[in-house]
Design a protein around this nucleic acid. Sequence first.
RNA 1: GGUCCCGUAGCUCAACUGGAUAGAGCAGCUGACUUCUAAUCAGCAGGUUGCAGGUUCGAGUCCUGCCGGGAUCACCA
Length: 586
Amino acid sequence: MDAFAVFRNRVEEKLINLYPELSDNKAALSRFVVEPPRDASHGDLSCNAAMVLSKTLKSNPRAIADSIVAAFEGDPQVANIEIAGPGFINFTLTPDVWQSVIADANEQGADYGRPAVAPVGKVNVEYVSANPTGPLHVGHTRGAVFGDALASLMAFCRYEITREYYINDAGGQITVLANSAYLRYCQALGDDIGEIPAGLYPGKYLIPVGKALAEQFGDKLKSMDDAEREATIRPVVLEKMMDMVRADLEKLGIKHDKFFSESTLHGGGNGGDIKETLDWLREQGLVYQGTLEAPKGKTPEEWEDREQTLFKATQFGDDTDRALVKSDGSYTYFAADIAYHRNKYLRGYNSQIVVLGADHAGYIKRLGAAGKAVSGGEAEVDVKICQLVNLLRNGQPAKMSKRSGNFVTMANLVEEVGQDVVRFIMLFRRNEAPLDFDFDLVTQQTRDNPVFYVQYAHARACSAFRNAARDVPELDVSPDSLKSADLSLLSHPAELTLLKVMGQFPRAIEAAAVAHEPHRVAFYVHELAGAFNAFWTKGKEEPQLRFVNHEDRTITLARLAMVNAVRQILRNGLGILGVSAPDELS
RNA sequence: GGUCCCGUAGCUCAACUGGAUAGAGCAGCUGACUUCUAAUCAGCAGGUUGCAGGUUCGAGUCCUGCCGGGAUCACCA
């Protein structure tokens, strides 16, 4: 049970009893919260209902608070209740409420923290979606980790989640890719290709692709005309590129459920494709022929004033209407994007999350507009922007030379510092804040390094069990035995402090999922690790607080039950982030 | 010029979506180590939350206008 949720319900019940007119006013009732007070001296739980409902009830907050407090008279789990400040109701709970967190965590195990009821509706999380023209680099990594952790977080909270990758395989860059691969193919057949011409991809990763083409086709590609050759090469190269992307993602532990190919939107008739979508938009009166004004910063010479096919994006909150058809008659990228959002909507996703890089900030409004337009306002499109990652070495910018075509790939990054570090560091920051990634700092095993700090706390928890097995081998610490522990022994203030942090896990998780903010999970496990380390050190000053007590088996068992719960919560939190929880650190 | 993001302790960042006296870590002082119960912990010090207004019981958070930093700005993807 989550004490915060339980007491919120309890307050709501009492409010409806006291003020029957609230029973059909869900909106008002949904506005108050029960949360931990900032200052621990205010108690365990704080409720703002009296202030929030003051207007609705046309009564002053103090009077409402008084009536709520009176209604809690006799509640066996309330040790103290008082009104403070402008009308906060502060609860201090009896220790057994917090002690029960241990039993819950140990009993529910990997499910501890999971909300009881599943939210309605399917959620599509689209992330990475990098152009399949080369290896993933560090710029893709943050979005990849963020999207993956967000999907895991929401899946943990029982949302029906699909992890999706949109393959941009319909544009001109794939033609360039095919031509680049053809050059490597010629090279594989023994031709001297010299310098890679400007405009083609120079990367060495295409060399094996060229070899594969040579093995598959012999010299047949050379005798084809350009169109036939491209049509032949394209799917083969694309597949190779996507294999590479998938392999890179796997190094970070990322696996998508669905790879959606943009080119399928350009084909015909499978529902939700571009033509059908544009026809549908036309029926809605959202498409017209017109001209756009030149942006203020552009000089008239840079601007070709021309009539084009436009989507009324402004009607849905965008800043300008958007072109759907290019001057050569083909569809714009955005036209495909609208169709893609419609496709997702038709597949039943009323909630669509799109994770993009910092350079796509300008897309938030237009994607939101697309989502609203194609769903008649039913689908929510939440665009999450991940800001830039600054790579540092020893505090100095780790410059990458763009000229030589060298860049830090995702694979390099993971190889150098490991999956856990990459993932945790990238999640230990709000997504919209820029991130410094210092190679030297993130590999240190010190307090400065949050990944290490949290993993160390988990390893310590495990070591408590190793020590117990060594020092009191006759003590049964099996799950069943831990279940029988007398948790009421854990009433020392230091223990209650730790237990209260533990008890916040469920609401922290749920709030993070609702807000689409996985970084909160990272901050939570960091806080729990701190609370655990603090308690651990207390055992130094006060030996009776040590986990293993040679004289007293019952307190040892209770303490180990608590340690096991800490370990479980850390595992659950880290599991959501995709970071391992090692039993020992080397 | 438009739009979006950011601006919080010397530094790097939080603040549970409007709650109470704005919190952590680093750096600086003080103290605690037979290194898996110090890879850590406790304490001290550090603030006009960029500026000015507004909304209300209450603002770092919401609205307006400025200042500073970054990103982006038809037809590429």
